[in-house]
Design a binder for these strands. Structure first.
Lengths: 288, 288
DNA sequence: CGTCAAAATGAAAATGGTTTCCGATATGCA
DNA sequence: TGCATATCGGAAACCATTTTCATTTTGACG
């Protein structure tokens, strides 16, 4: 799904002065644009109608009308990107802005995803004899644990290792047919790189969830690129967690589909054991 | 937000023959309408342009253009909802559908959020002497750990307890001024309820992230409602993780803003120590 | 079953918004 | 400074949309 506001983001640098005014108007007042004619928009921005037309073309739209339609679609989607910077310190605005950031993080990660790569990763994982998840630090270790949590349910022998020394030791025990999923937000976790190198010499396949072009990615057999800009505001949470979680979900789902019956049987067992000891009804989530 | 499709539903009975053809076209082929001119639409429906204009007026739109805008808005939301069920088993479709589910989960959680409640929770947390995060099972224990990971950076004494026996023991040591954040997807984690009861008798404030109307929620001093329907497909991941994570982020952000300078100083320290031992550049995420 | 009124519809003209063309102005570079 | 290029707006051309109005259809009633 092409999204006009991310297009805007991309081409903003090579926009002219008048076009930037229009860009600002679009961001601040999309609602107005959607309900106005080209002359109204031109007047409001203090430019001429032809400039507005050109602006629309630059954004990849056939015509002003097509442009309006695109804007309408995006603005309705929960004022997604528009609110990426909170309008105020009011909790409701903060909430909207966080939501916008996460949706953007997930959506742009999905857009950047190379499906062949993801498929290759899913293939490797679904036939792994042992699956080890490596990650250290806030986000990466959470993802590592989450990978264990998601894949053991599918009947895969899975272990999460979030400690550098343990990663090295785990690596030493791995062999052909084993797979490592290595998560690193920065892609520069050098101690993990050392462990991965060791694992590779013993025949393990390394799948990296990380930034491309960094040590972790360079070393991996398969790299699923997750490359998000970090925000400016130090008090704001990093959005990368959502991107990583999304990729984890996608992999888990694809692997589950590949493993079909066995995955289903394992999930059923987990559910059954849970509902035996706790009074959960059948619709309840798999594990609290 | 006025929704053109529900308007259509309402007035459908008093529509004329030609208008019904248009209604059918709108329902089956909104995508086409949005990208076409009035003559194209008229031709496709086998009616004349004026009929299309009249149809738009009937639906409460000023003009055909205004009509298109409305359709664009609704269909976008609609496709989001529709893609929640993957169009096929192709990885790209699965990815889109997971993304849609995630966005839907986050957005509906945000919509359901009572801001006064969230504020009250943030207030309680930001002045807590000890913050304990309770949770057990896949999602809840991940969230519990994540809470620790987020709040200790803000200078709060935080501990994550994901083991029922430990929760009970931790509860026994708590006192007035301490706060527990209890996460439970089902809201029926009875062993955790027992621990919470104990903590309350010792004066701790209990904030619950859970389903309303369930034991955990009933017992809590402050309940932040997270109430998502579980999907049908057992192979699909539960979306509740995203909802919980979003709420955690929101709380962390609000608390960070409340604690202002102290939070900033702690984050700076964490960053500094990390960049001392690892060659991260300054923009790097706080903790891999 | 025919007549008539009211509603529905389309053809064509009128309208008005959008685009194209072209010249004027500003900007960057040798 | 002078040339090349990009930017921009005025005005005309264009075209989609709307209005008008005549025709057809529908349905009620004699």
């Amino acid at each position: 799904m092409r999204d006009i506001l991310s297009v805007l983001q991309q081409i903003e640098p090579d926009l002219s002065k008048s076009e930037r005014i229009l860009a600002a108007l679009l961001r601040s007042n999309a609602e107005f644009i959607v309900n106005a004619g080209i002359t109204d928009v031109a007047e409001r921005a203090g430019v001429s109608p032809p400039t507005v037309t050109r602006f629309c073309r630059r954004l990849g739209c056939e015509s002003f009308t097509a442009f309006k339609v695109q804007v309408a679609q995006v603005t309705f989607a929960g004022t997604r990107y528009l609110t990426a910077n909170a309008a105020s310190d009011a909790p409701a605005d903060i909430a909207d802005s966080l939501l916008a950031q996460f949706q953007e993080a997930a959506a742009s990660t999905r857009d950047a995803l190379g499906m062949e790569t993801v498929l290759a990763a899913a293939d490797a994982i679904s036939t792994a004899k042992l699956l080890a998840a490596f990650g250290a630090g806030g986000t990466s270790s959470m993802i590592s644990d989450e990978i264990q949590n998601r894949f053991f349910r599918l009947g895969l022998r899975t272990v999460s290792v979030t400690d550098h020394a343990m990663q090295l030791m785990q690596a030493a025990t791995m062999r052909t047919g084993d797979v490592i999923i290595a998560s690193s937000v920065s892609g520069r976790n050098l101690q993990m790189v050392r462990a991965l190198e060791a694992a590779k010499t013993y025949g393990a396949v390394v799948i990296a969830l990380t930034r491309p072009g960094r040590p972790v990615a360079d070393l991996a057999d398969i790299t699923i690129a997750i490359d998000l800009p970090e925000g400016e505001n130090i008090l704001r949470p990093s959005t990368s967690r959502y991107a990583f979680l999304f990729v984890t979900d996608l992999l888990a789902t694809l692997v589950a589909m590949r493993r079909g019956d066995e995955a289903r049987e394992n999930l059923r067992r987990v559910k059954y054991q849970l509902s035996n000891t706790r009074d959960l009804d059948d619709k309840e989530a798999l594990g609290d």
